[in-house]
Structures are given as structure tokens and as C-alpha cells.
Design a binder for these strands. Structure first.
Length: 97
DNA sequence: CAACTGACTGCCG
DNA sequence: CCGGCAGCCAGTT
């Protein structure tokens, strides 16, 4: 089922973003087993597959704290995603789908 | 096998 | 807005 999640991540268009929870729900609807936000996070942390992982953020519109957080932000900004003073993006506008 | 540990969330104070 | 906390569940200790 990790593949189902990655297939979805692969579909996120540049300049947009999706949350762990949303991916979990979408993957659950499409697949047969229930997927949780934490599982999505674990998949993103362990997969070797080449997918736009930087377009996945948490439900608060923030980048989940970890080593590659800075790089993730750079990549998003490179796609035109704007961050406010508190390091948050406008989910209402960028959220995919 | 019990206990811990998160790329998480939603609710509450 | 921020921190705390209970659910969450597969992978590690």
C-alpha cells in the first residue's frame, strides 16, 4: 500500500501541496486497507522511490520538523510557494486536489 | 512479547 | 497562537 500513497504523491502538481492526512484518506479510499497520516509520514521517510516528497506538508500548513526541512522549504519556494512569517503556507489556496 | 518511537491529527485550555 | 494530550499503528528495541 505504500505504493498507492507514492502514486498519489507523484500526481501532486508543482507549486501545490497536500497533507499527510489527506493523502492517507485518499489512499484509503482507493486501496483496500486503511492508511493513517503517520503511515504516510513513515513511507515518505523510508521510500527510495523518486517522488516530489517536498510537496507533502502537515495539516497545519507547516513543514514537519526534521533534518531536510530547510531543503523542503527551498524547493517549495523554488516552485513559487510562499511562506508567511510563521513559516506557514496558504493551504486554502495551495492544497491539492 | 511489552515498551518506545515517530515526515501526524484533532481537541482543549 | 502555543503547548499538551490522547488516539494512531507499523517498525524497532
Amino acid at each position: 500500500e505504500a505504493d498507492g500513497v507514492l502514486d498519489l504523491v507523484e500526481q501532486i502538481p508543482a507549486g501545490r501541496a497536500t497533507t499527510y492526512g489527506d493523502l492517507a484518506r485518499m489512499a484509503s479510499d482507493i486501496g483496500t486497507v486503511r492508511v493513517t497520516a503517520r503511515m504516510v509520514g513513515r513511507v515518505m521517510a523510508t521510500t527510495q522511490r523518486d517522488v516530489p516528497w517536498w510537496r507533502v506538508i502537515n495539516a497545519q500548513g507547516r513543514i514537519s520538523p526534521r533534518d531536510s526541512a530547510a531543503e523542503q522549504r527551498r524547493r517549495l519556494e523554488g516552485e513559487g510557494v510562499a511562506f508567511d512569517a510563521r513559516g506557514r503556507v496558504d493551504l486554502a489556496c495551495l492544497l491539492w486536489p
